[in-house]
Design a protein around this nucleic acid. Sequence first.
RNA 1: GGGGAAGUGGCGGAACCGGCAGACGCAGCGGACUUAAAAUCCGCAGCCCACAAGGCGUGAGGGUUCGAGUCCCUCCUUCCCCA
Length: 861
Amino acid sequence: MSNVYDPTAIEARWQARWEAERTFAAPNPDGPGFDASRPKYYVLDMFPYPSGSGLHVGHAVGYIGTDIVARKKRMEGCNVLHPMGWDAFGLPAEQYAIQTGVHPSASTATNTANFRRQLKRIGLSYDWSREVNTSEPSYFRWTQWIFKRLHAQGLAYQAEVPVWWCEELKTVLANEEVINGRSERGNYPCVRRPLRQWMLKITAYAERLLADLDGLDWPESIKIQQREWIGKSEGAEVEFAVEGGAEKLVVFTTRPDTLWGATFMVVAPEHKLLARASASQRAAVDAYVASAASKSELERTELAKDKTGVFSGLYAHNPAFDAGDPRGRIPIWVADYVLISYGTGAIMAVPGHDERDCAFARKFGLEVREVVRPPQGERGLSEGVCFTGDGTAVSSGPIDGLATSAAKAKAIELLCARGVGVARTTYKLRDWLFSRQRYWGEPFPLVHLADGSTVAVDDDALPIELPPMDDFKPSSDGSAPLARASAWLRTTHRGASARRDTDTMPGWAGSCWYWLRFMDPHNASEPWSKAAERYWGPVDLYVGGAAHAVMHLLYARFWHKVLFDLGLVHTKEPFQKLFNQGLITAFAYQDKSGRLVASDEVETRGNEFVRTSSGEPLEQIVTKMAKSLKNVVNPDDVIAEYGADTLRLYESFMGPLADSKPWNPRDITGCARFVERAWKLIVDPDGRDPVRPQFRVDQGERALEGDTLELERALHRAIARIDDSFKAFNFNTSIAALMTFVNEAYKRQSALSRSQAERFVLSLAPFAPHLAEELWSRLGYAQSLAHVAWPKVRPEFLEDDTVEIVVQVAGKLRGRVSVAKTASQAEIEAAARPSVASWVEGKELAKVVLVPGRLINFIVK
RNA sequence: GGGGAAGUGGCGGAACCGGCAGACGCAGCGGACUUAAAAUCCGCAGCCCACAAGGCGUGAGGGUUCGAGUCCCUCCUUCCCCA
């Protein structure tokens, strides 16, 4: 047996053993080996989209974090569910197929194999028997099955919604494929055009999605973002009669108290009322509508931008005034700062008390009326300032003199009484556009019948698989590629001929329930068993990037709540605790023109960075790791050079898991040295025994005194710091504590006992598992340490007999004294005085502040 | 435009409830070992000042306090996300 530390051999050996012995397999309640006496712990990573470029060290940092948690929880006696899988449907694979001809299922298989290999090399303790892949029929069968339930609940419907259409490319484009109204590919003009799409009625769950956030152990920042996104606002819906027609213009306002100040109305360019625009304004309105169609919502709502708009020639009547009162006759304009998709697509404009209305009124010379007087000391309309806060109602007839909140209530009351308004709560959240005219996604489990109806297929017809195709391009008429799979398209439903729906679900679909499938991944008769869900749910810890703060987490919560209502899950929320890992950034290099230079073409000369080939000076910048920035670090390379344990330690040692932090290859050596030192603490590299003689079993334990007692204290301090680091996931302090212990142990090598060596190895295990397993086995244990009890901290070893007290005079550090832990204030004062005599001399002592165990402060005048 | 996070040595970071700022590591310097170098081991190390004494120090400015990296106000900068 060689006693030289050889990470390549050690890591391969332990990874093979873990796999062969199914060390991390988590039995379900009905499975063999299940121990009901242990508490459960479900720790989940946001599963990756298996991209062609593979995993980089930035992805790995979160996985290493959850692995550390999973491993410690196992040692603490929990049944740990720690699975991994693939979010494998999506646009990139399809785009790649269009470019290269490689079928998405083929590239997905290649990519997942590569990801799996990379993750295994890092030594992550996943239960690989639970691996799932959202693009496999055995998985998406159940995605379709759940969609059927949503459909049956009336939560899925079809609607005409505006989507980006590129005439040049003859295709529908996703939001992210359109930049400034032009296609990302080819830079062709795009317009928003209504197309029939599947929608999910997430708005029906808005209130619960908002309210249930309160009970979750999530970062406050994420909760804020979700609340913001849901955007609850309370106000009133008000009807305005339109002159010369029977239909009403309905608007929503959060400020019904300002109704008396509504001097005009604005409708969105898509509003159907515009069909009635007056003959004289017809041409202007049509031209305006056409130009608005090419703008994104961002451009349209940009506050800084100049407001644009056109008068429609129509007038409405403000219901605050009696019929015939000239103050109630107000013009209707069309402007693109009003969005058809938000609210009713029309607003009452109160230029005195709304910034955007004010800007619009000033530009087009419309009337501005003050109806809210600001509180004392604040500037209002009379000072030329648009006041949008709360104040007192004025020039508003029946609500004059009321404070804003009372004025709102009274205004709603009046509107209700007259039958022209009603109290109303609205949400910014909109229904979820759930269909794509693309190939690589879940087909809808729906068929269209000859009578024009659309029905769900029977459960036993699931899964609806994708037809094999070679050409995935969207069709020139905007229809999906599946519409060309004519054989696939024609089917029967309960004997009648039927036509399949040709849309596919969006990339988010598969990730809306995967944590449930992990609980029971091979169930062929249901998506998961009740027993499995009741045992494992909810996820105890969910870790992923803050990038998914809103979309994924909101969609996933929505599906979970629907499943809860159907009695399919027993918790209202899927993820009890959420944690966001920070971004790993990296150095990138730019030449004078700002062009990026790949890191491997750069060398360091003193403090300068130059291009190796030309010697041209370069600037070092720090940015996120991305292929396009040529600064991606592949974990395979780090493992090849240092081993997986060093990689894991460095990723953890860089800083708190939540922080964004720069990858610096120079720093890795510190962790590599630590691993080597830890090894040599237990193993004599020049010897022949598996461990140093002092750790042999027959050597017996030594008494806890002298250096051995000091080491005992050092060990307890280290383990206490490690335990503490799991609260905030700042494992950097764990590693520092382990390093400190090793440094202490080197100074007192001969005093280190076998028991201490064992506990050190166990405390190292979550962070550097291969090294720990190897040392554990050398210490004579045949079994893996994965389920061995985590060492306990005993408080009596955390304190010394004496404490060092800092002595301050007037808050400034002037000395320090060592006193017994049990010393009284008088004793400490007496001990401290001599060390600061010269500072206190001749001055009047005003006060003495004592912080027990820490400091004493003499306040002098 | 909206939202979020963060500013501490040359670098990554530490500092629990307001109590020794800079743990641990990198880079640096010195020593031991070595024919020599590397590796390893042991030390030193915030800045100013010739040293000491002392002073100054947590993005900037102000406040609260015996005492502020930490709490409160104003401002600046950087990063991330959404539309």
